[in-house]
Simulated scan of single mutants.
Amino acid sequence: MKSSFTILLLFFTFFCYSQKVFSAKYTNQADVKVFVVKYESQADLNIYKVKYQNQAGKNDGKWFFVEYENQADKKIYFVDYESQADLKIYFVEYENQAGWRNKEKIHLMY
């Protein structure tokens, strides 16, 4: 009984933090409003878009964009102005560049 609970807890923890995101059409459908900044130094989080779902990270900036809302762990909405955003992101070219620059906002993607 105890071991099955531990396995279940580990299973839940693994999937709870994966970063499968869905780009919502409307702001009221989103969990987090994001703005894409021009320069890496302006970002709260550097994002690397992975090609496959199993490569998605655990709140470390490696995102997989899903096709359907019900597949996502987080729903995001891209705003037009920085002042409207909860989170500022920058898309990086290489996987090792992904990660948090402002850890104060890390809770937004849990």
Rank of each mutant, 00 (worst) to 15 (best):
residue 67 E to C: 01
residue 31 D to L: 11
residue 103 K to M: 08
residue 22 F to I: 09
residue 91 F to C: 04
residue 106 I to R: 12
residue 40 E to F: 01
residue 20 K to M: 07
residue 87 L to R: 09
residue 88 K to L: 14
residue 36 V to D: 03
residue 6 T to V: 14
residue 88 K to I: 08
residue 64 F to S: 00
residue 12 F to H: 07
residue 8 L to R: 04
residue 14 F to S: 13
residue 81 Y to L: 12
residue 36 V to Y: 05
residue 20 K to R: 11
residue 101 R to A: 06
residue 3 S to W: 10
residue 78 F to N: 09
residue 62 K to C: 04
residue 56 A to P: 01
residue 85 A to V: 09
residue 81 Y to K: 15
residue 32 V to F: 06
residue 84 Q to I: 03
residue 82 E to W: 02
residue 7 I to L: 10
residue 50 V to L: 09
residue 24 A to L: 10
residue 58 K to C: 03
residue 1 M to S: 15
residue 72 A to S: 14
residue 6 T to Q: 11
residue 54 N to V: 02
residue 35 F to S: 03
residue 79 V to Y: 02
residue 76 I to D: 01
residue 110 Y to R: 13
residue 25 K to E: 15
residue 80 D to T: 13
residue 65 F to L: 09
residue 74 K to N: 13
residue 102 N to S: 06
residue 76 I to C: 05
residue 54 N to H: 12
residue 76 I to R: 01
residue 110 Y to K: 14
residue 82 E to V: 13
residue 45 L to Y: 04
residue 29 Q to F: 09
residue 30 A to G: 06
residue 109 M to E: 01
residue 31 D to Y: 07
residue 21 V to I: 15
residue 55 Q to C: 02
residue 11 F to R: 02
residue 32 V to K: 05
residue 89 I to N: 02
residue 40 E to L: 08
residue 58 K to I: 02
residue 77 Y to E: 08
residue 107 H to T: 02
residue 96 N to G: 03
residue 96 N to R: 11
residue 57 G to E: 02
residue 90 Y to T: 05
residue 29 Q to S: 14
residue 90 Y to A: 03
residue 94 Y to D: 12
residue 21 V to Y: 12
residue 2 K to L: 12
residue 107 H to A: 07
residue 42 Q to K: 11
residue 110 Y to D: 12
residue 17 Y to Q: 07
residue 18 S to I: 11
residue 50 V to P: 01
residue 23 S to I: 14
residue 14 F to H: 12
residue 33 K to C: 10
residue 27 T to K: 15
residue 10 L to E: 04
residue 61 G to M: 02
residue 24 A to V: 06
residue 74 K to T: 11
residue 92 V to K: 05
residue 87 L to W: 10
residue 4 S to G: 00
residue 97 Q to N: 06
residue 41 S to H: 12
residue 43 A to V: 09
residue 49 K to N: 10
residue 9 L to P: 00
residue 48 Y to S: 06
residue 25 K to Q: 14
residue 96 N to A: 06
residue 104 E to Y: 09
residue 59 N to S: 12
residue 98 A to Y: 04
residue 72 A to T: 08
residue 13 T to N: 09
residue 81 Y to I: 08
residue 8 L to D: 05
residue 64 F to T: 00
residue 6 T to P: 00
residue 104 E to G: 04
residue 31 D to I: 08
residue 10 L to N: 07
residue 83 S to T: 10
residue 106 I to K: 15
residue 101 R to L: 14
residue 72 A to H: 05
residue 20 K to F: 06
residue 24 A to Q: 07
residue 51 K to P: 00
residue 69 E to R: 12
residue 102 N to M: 05
residue 87 L to D: 09
residue 101 R to Y: 05
residue 35 F to Y: 15
residue 103 K to F: 06
residue 68 Y to S: 07
residue 41 S to C: 08
residue 56 A to G: 03
residue 20 K to C: 04
residue 19 Q to N: 14
residue 13 T to A: 14
residue 109 M to W: 03
residue 27 T to N: 12
residue 13 T to G: 03
residue 57 G to Q: 01
residue 71 Q to D: 15
residue 97 Q to H: 07
residue 77 Y to Q: 07
residue 83 S to M: 07
residue 67 E to N: 13
residue 98 A to C: 06
residue 18 S to A: 11
residue 53 Q to N: 07
residue 25 K to Y: 10
residue 94 Y to H: 14
residue 77 Y to K: 06
residue 1 M to Q: 11
residue 69 E to H: 05
residue 15 F to M: 10
residue 39 Y to W: 10
residue 63 W to Y: 11
residue 62 K to V: 02
residue 108 L to F: 04
residue 40 E to R: 12
residue 68 Y to V: 03
residue 95 E to P: 00
residue 33 K to W: 10
residue 78 F to R: 08
